[in-house]
Each structure stands twice: as C-alpha cells, then as structure tokens.
C-alpha cells in the first residue's frame, strides 16, 4: 500500500477511489436513514399528531407559495406558447401545450424545488440545531429513537403533501395559462379547455404524481440526512455547521430533483 502511495501515477486513482468510497458511504447512510424513517411510519404506535403537524408545515404553509409560482409559470407558458404556436397557426393547441408541460414536467419539478427551499431547508436547520445542542443525544438517552421521533413524521408528511401540492400547482398553472392565452391574447375559452380535455390522458397525470412522490422521498431523505449528520460536515459543530448542512441540503436536493426528473421521465415515457 505504501509503495502504491509513493507512486506518483497512482495518486489520482487513490484520490478518485477515496472520493468514490466516500460518496457511496454517504449514499448508503441517506438510504438507510430514509428506509428506517419510512419503516417506522408503518409501525405502531402511529404518530398521527406529529404527521399532521408536519403536513401543516410542509403542505398547508406552502400553499400560497405554490399558488404564486404556479400561476406565474402558467402565465409565462401561456405567453411563450402562444408566441410559438401562432407561427404555425396552431394557437388552438395552447391549452394542451400548457397543461402537458405543467402536469408532466414543471408541476412536479417546480413544486419540489419550492418545497425544498421552504420546508427542506427548515428540516435540515431544525435537525442540525438539535444535533448541535445535544437534543438528539438526549432523545437517545431517553430510549426514544430519534429517527422515529423526528424523521419518520417528516417523510410520511412529505409523501402525502408533495403530490397534493403538485396537483394544486397543476390546476393553478393551467388557469394561469388561460389568463394569458384566453383573457389577454384572445384564444377562445372553449378551445383552450377542450384541447386539454382531448389530448390529456390519465397516464400524463399519474406520471406527474409518481414524480412528485419520488421527489418527496429524495428531498426529505437528503434534507434530513444533512441535518441529522450536521456534526459530520466539514464545518462540524456550531452555527457554521448548521449553515453548511442547510446549504448542502438545498443544493443537493435541487440537483437530485433535476437528475431524478430526467431518469424518471426516461423510464416512464
């Protein structure tokens, strides 16, 4: 081993190997944390009140944000879609273009990104502070499993909230497209909605909802991981550790949402 280390040509491979092992270890921890949290969600005693609290925090409190982002996304799509379709004389298909773009892609992706920024960062910060102030250790000393107590309700609540928020985003987005397409640019209301009805199939909706469930799992697993293991970050303990784990949680979740979107789309298409 020493001989290999001394060999200058081996240095990049050693570096690569160490980095790869580190990433695999990290991924393993994320998966185990998520699997444990999900498992506890189905084992009595059920934590209904904590799950409802989390649904309120992740879901209900994100409604305004989702409505705002959804409406503006739909409005922009209405404008851009009209500008493109009118060149081909196909402006009657604007409803289909807006609805399919939102339901299959933008709805689940933007909803997940918005909740990551709002609730995911909060999850990471909350767990990070609890780790730094020994509250997680305190739970362990009291025979309370911190994954069950803290992470499980967040996972279950996310899996319930993400698809519902995505559905809200979809509806608001389609209405946003209607505002610009029909009310501002003059496309017939009937044409706009009937084109959606004619061309949208149930698999488009189910694909969007499947994506949102996958994104919910990704976001919660990543954000909870970074918060729970704040003490293992480079900055370690203290305010810097929490700030680093929160940033990492949001950035990593966002990257995984985009990458996951591509993978899921390629499988479902």
């Amino acid at each position: 081993m020493k001989r290999i280390k001394n060999n200058i040509t081996a240095v990049p491979f050693i570096f690569l190997g160490e980095k790869t092992l580190k990433i695999i270890k990290k991924l393993g921890r994320v998966v185990i944390l998520f699997a444990k949290g999900l498992f506890f969600g189905f084992i009595p005693p059920f934590q209904f009140s904590k799950i409802i609290d989390q649904i309120y925090f992740i879901g209900a409190k994100s409604m305004l944000l989702i409505c705002l982002v959804g409406s503006f996304t739909g409005m922009v799509l209405g404008l851009q879609g009209y500008y493109t379709l009118v060149k081909f004389g196909a402006e009657g298909m604007l409803g289909t273009a807006v609805a399919l773009s939102i339901i299959r892609e933008l709805g689940p992706v933007l909803t997940a990104l918005m909740i990551t920024g709002r609730a995911g960062s909060a999850m990471a910060a909350e767990l990070g502070i609890m780790r730094n102030s020994e509250q997680i250790d305190a739970l362990k000393t009291m025979n309370i499993d911190p994954v069950r107590f803290l992470i499980s309700p967040k996972i279950i609540a996310s899996i319930i909230s993400f698809p519902l928020l995505t559905a809200v985003f979809d509806v608001i987005g389609i209405l946003g497209g209607f505002i610009t397409g029909s009310l501002l640019l003059g496309i017939d209301t009937g044409t706009y909605f009937s084109s959606i009805e004619l061309n949208l199939v149930i698999s488009d909706i189910s694909e969007g909802l499947i994506k949102s469930i996958i994104f919910a799992s990704l976001v919660t697993a990543i954000c909870c991981y970074y918060g729970y293991y704040t003490h293992k970050t480079r900055a370690g303990f203290g305010a810097k550790g929490v700030s680093q784990s929160t940033t990492s949680a949001v950035v990593t979740s966002s990257v995984f949402i985009m990458a996951g979107d591509y993978v899921v789309t390629s499988f479902l298409l």
């Binding site: 502070i129 609890m130 102030s133 020994e134 509250q135 250790d137 305190a138 000393t141 009291m142 025979n143």
Partner: peptide
Amino acid sequence: LKKKCSYMFQGNALFD
C-alpha cells in the same frame, strides 16, 4: 438497562 438510567447534559439539552 437504559430505562434504569437518566442523563443530565452539561448544556441541559432541553427541547427548545
């Protein structure tokens, strides 16, 4: 065994 023990942390570790 853990049920028989309690721990009082230096920084109290109260749930804020």
